[in-house]
Amino acid sequence: MIISPRHTQKIAFSLLSLCTVLVIAPVFVIIALIVIRGGPGISWEFLTAMPRMGMKAGGIFPAIVGTLYLVSVTMLFAIPFGVLAAVYLVEYARDHALKRFVEVAIVNLAGVPSIVFGLFGLGLFVVFLKMGTSILAGALTLAIMTLPVIITSTKEALSTVPRSFREVSLSLGATGWQTIRHAVLPNALPGILTGIVLGLSRAAGETAPVLFTVAAFYLPRLPHSFFDQVMVLPYHLYVLSTQVPNVKPEVQYGTALVLVGMVLILNLFAVIIRARFRRRKQW
């Protein structure tokens, strides 16, 4: 039997749509599952109380605070370095070979497994620089891991700023940095912010790099300084789901929901910034 090309196409397209459903449907199933099963676990107490009874009850307050603290310090390091690195690549690098070399390095940095970042952070920051297991060590590790995300999106944002803005500014006698600071960066800001938010969300969700650099198994108090350990949400979820027996599902799912919620809200922010910027763009 000969099948006509039309029929082949029909069969092929159904298979392709099946692939897509198989990829995308689980995403929504996962999120729905977490929301439905985690929702009942969320309460004011859950969000603001210390864990009790070996983490089987009480809240996850220190993990939330720890994550926020850690991510803020991470961004403190990652944003300036990342943005300036992108500025270098887009605005300054004229030596093609060197530029390419840096770009390859960034691609590779982005590809380094997160657990290897953990090892690196342990080796360099915790042990060699004697920071100990601390927010500082964890944040520096996460900052290096987030750099490629920030650099890539900042680069993209910078290259959407018309060349004419730079020429106008320079033609008025502004210096190179003044031009970047006043004519380029403000107009790339939405794109840069998008990258920062995505980097933030990545940092907030990572477990492997913080395992040996900052994460505390159980520490029912808030951090006092940069040199304290903290509990963080992703590691806490790992602990609840594999290390502590007989944890109630709503505590596990609730923790997952808080983490996913945090990350998805950040991503939503990124989407909104991007969309608003596209609408407002005047050139």
Binding site: S164, F165, E167, S171, L172, G173, T175
Partner: peptide, 17 residues
């Protein structure tokens, strides 16, 4: 910078920032 301050330029298209 000083040179470009002394020699100003108006471009082909109106290019307001």
């Amino acid at each position: 910078s000083l040179l470009r301050k002394r020699i100003g330029m108006v471009f082909a298209l109106p290019l307001p920032l």
